[in-house]
């Protein structure tokens, strides 16, 4: 990603020196750099906003500026299962496993993605659900067609639970240069480091991009409980039993018939 970013930077610098037309740049920000998961967490909204800057060197353009905002969660390993009928019952029979699947992936665009940028650009930048690099690991001798079916199923199931989102016309221009979009983070979101990338396009040409980090973490009681269960599993288990014994004992006393 770093290599790619610096490469793009280089290209934009290069084009700047030849035709000092590509002078638009982008300043973006997010409403909060952290999201805390506490016991009353039911999801959160992150506002991504910013400004498209034009300087004196900018020429008037025939096309409108278009934007894409991509929010990507930490990678996970996922398996897509397909139930098949075996001896009268439906069981998980065929599977395909993918490594490095973003646990959350939301794309917001100011117009439909294919209008903002060309097919090739979207693929190169990994923008859009169809352009996620989902390569199955150890899927055996699956046909091309089967692979696509499993891949599509993965995307569909993640969309159903709100963890994959693709929205066009979701970025509002508040003025010709100011923009904002609201990204909904559902309650079943994974914790970790998220990246938010904003892309500025004009006439299907990528002019500028900017990236922010968003940190999602459990906090307070939720965090302590979770890390105890992972770091001190034995102690966690003993505590759970002690809690159960105490509750049962207390109930026995409260409801004791004399």
């Amino acid at each position: 990603m770093h290599m790619l970013a610096s490469f793009l930077c280089l290209i934009s610098l290069f084009s700047l020196s030849i035709i000092s037309a590509r002078a638009e740049s982008l300043v973006s920000a997010i409403s909060s750099p952290t999201v805390s998961i506490t016991s009353n967490f039911t999801g959160a909204d992150i506002l991504v906003f910013g400004e498209v800057n034009r300087d004196a060197a900018s020429v008037a353009r025939a096309n409108d500026n278009e934007l894409i905002v991509v929010v990507e969660g930490p990678p996970e390993r996922m398996t897509t299962w397909r139930k098949e009928r075996l001896a009268g019952i439906w069981i998980n029979a065929t599977s395909s496993t993918y490594a490095g699947v973003p646990s959350f992936y939301a794309v917001h665009a100011s117009t439909p993605l294919t209008v903002v940028a060309g097919e090739q650009t979207l693929k190169e930048q990994r923008i859009g659900l169809q352009n996620l690099p989902l390569a199955p690991i150890a899927s055996g001798e699956m046909t091309r067609n089967e692979r696509k079916v499993f891949r599509d199923a993965l995307i569909r199931k993640r969309e159903e639970i709100g963890l994959f989102v693709e929205k066009s016309e979701a970025i509002k221009f508040l003025s010709p240069t100011l923009f904002a979009t609201n990204v909904e983070l559902p309650s079943n979101i994974a914790v970790g480091e998220y990246t938010i990338t904003t892309y500025l396009f004009n006439g299907q040409v990528l002019l500028h991009q900017q990236q922010q980090k968003l940190h999602i973490a459990k906090e307070g009681f939720e965090q302590h409980t979770f890390s105890l269960s992972r770091q001190q599993p034995l102690l966690y288990g003993i505590l759970a039993v002690a809690l159960a014994l105490f509750t049962g004992w207390l109930a026995g006393i409260i409801f004791r018939k004399d």
């Binding site: 390993r77 398996t79 299962w81 699947v101 199923a153 993965l154 569909r156």
Partner: peptide, 20 residues
């Protein structure tokens, strides 16, 4: 649940969340 054809035969499970 076992005998009836499921509405959607596909399901996704996260195998490893923290260090995929």
């Amino acid at each position: 649940n076992l005998v009836l054809e499921p509405e959607d035969p596909y399901s996704v499970v996260v195998v490893d969340g923290e260090n995929a």
